[in-house]
Design a binder for these strands. Structure first.
Lengths: 216, 216
DNA sequence: AAAAAAAGCGAACGGTCGTTCTTTTTTTGA
DNA sequence: TCAAAAAAAGAACGACCGTTCGCTTTTTTT
């Protein structure tokens, strides 16, 4: 029997990764597997330094089989970002449901939630800030957009705080951006504080410092 | 005549890069050339994605000749960092000569000087934050140490400001770290502000925001 | 000016990488 | 139950990478 597998068989389903496999549930399952296992490797060794053979070993899938689910190595990096972004957006939606609180409480809640998220996704965030520039133009644009949405959400909280006189800052979006970056500092420069402060201390310092930056 | 070039000929002069070439001035000159040209390539394509052949073309040196001045590709990354660090330390020494100012002025001077430096070395800083983790243990340790020294310098200024009642913060070193990170964030996430603010506006916002974080 | 030393050169080597190809195994459905 | 479709497998391919080696050219020394 002639093989039915030609490169031209690969489908481009909307804006997701192309795949030769027919069963969409299977594709979703394997994409998640590939993303999770690869993320660990990328974090440890970097994207460029991780080989397809290593990914094959980590996922338990043969190299040829991997290429039934992706079309190039870069697709795997996109998959990793996709999985992380999906999670972020899900937790964002939960936060959005609590809009009628007062700005101060909402702000603290946002900070605390973010700190928790940063802790959980420490490695993934580090990876994204290290290697997002390797993404294709479209995928990079999408990553930027998601970050922007998050910053704008925080800016809105600050804006309401200014209107009610509890916060004070020259520009809410600028302040939101700075706070956003301050939140991820632990991810990128953790070693600066290594051994100097306890986790609790660090969290406390961070929240106080951020607050002082926008308090009226 | 038998070639006198054996790998074992290479000298390890103290803690610098090993080289087969005898003339130290020539080594220094070529190391600088290699570092400057490679930095540009690394910034554009990343260290792992830049080939020795590209570095050869950019420097005008044959590949074999490059290896007369280094012993492995990673040495070139170290060279790039070395050149940048030397510059940073030089500008730091100038700033240290002005210790008897009042803390507020000194602080502003520090911030303005840093902003200027960040602007000049935008690409190099970006590169270092992206790829420092590829360095060998010793070189990474040295990079960390230099950053730490800078932070401690800022912390000392803040400390004096607290003693004189102009600044107020829970922990000077923590505050200094946060400020330091805020200063370089523009390098990494410049696109967040792209088209939103002018350069002058950005500088002004940044200084004001940082100041508010530690003002009494 | 000749010999020795130093510096420069680029083809060639061995290995590894991403990707493809063909075959084998498993699943599906009539 | 068995043939057709789908999925999995891994050997093979070709390109390219970092590095080396032996040679040539240039500079220095006597």
């Amino acid at each position: 029997m002639k093989s039915s597998r030609k490169i031209t068989d690969k489908k481009k389903i909307n804006d997701t990764i192309s795949s030769r496999i027919k069963n969409p549930d299977l594709v979703k399952k394997k994409h998640l597997l590939i993303a999770k296992k690869s993320a660990k490797l990328f974090i440890k060794k970097g994207f460029a330094q991780t080989t397809m053979r290593e990914i094959s070993r980590a996922t338990g899938m043969a190299v040829g089989n991997l290429y039934d689910y992706i079309s190039k190595k870069e697709d795997i990096l996109s998959l990793v970002f996709e999985v992380y972004h999906r999670h972020v957006q899900e937790t964002m939606e939960i936060q959005d449901n609590e809009i009628d609180e007062n700005p101060m409480d909402q702000f603290r809640l946002f900070i605390q939630g973010s700190v928790k998220n940063v802790k959980i996704f420490h490695d993934e965030i580090h990876l994204m800030y290290r290697e997002s520039w390797l993404l294709s133009k479209e995928n990079l644009e999408r990553a930027k957009q998601i970050e922007l949405t998050q910053i704008e959400g925080l800016a809105k909280i600050i804006q309401r705080g200014i209107e009610q006189g509890v916060f004070k800052t020259q520009d809410p979006f600028f302040a939101a951006s700075m706070i956003f970056f301050q939140l991820i500092i632990l991810t990128m420069r953790g070693w600066t504080f290594q051994g100097k402060y306890s986790d609790k201390e660090l969290e406390n310092f961070l929240e106080t410092y951020i607050l002082q930056g926008i308090m009226a």
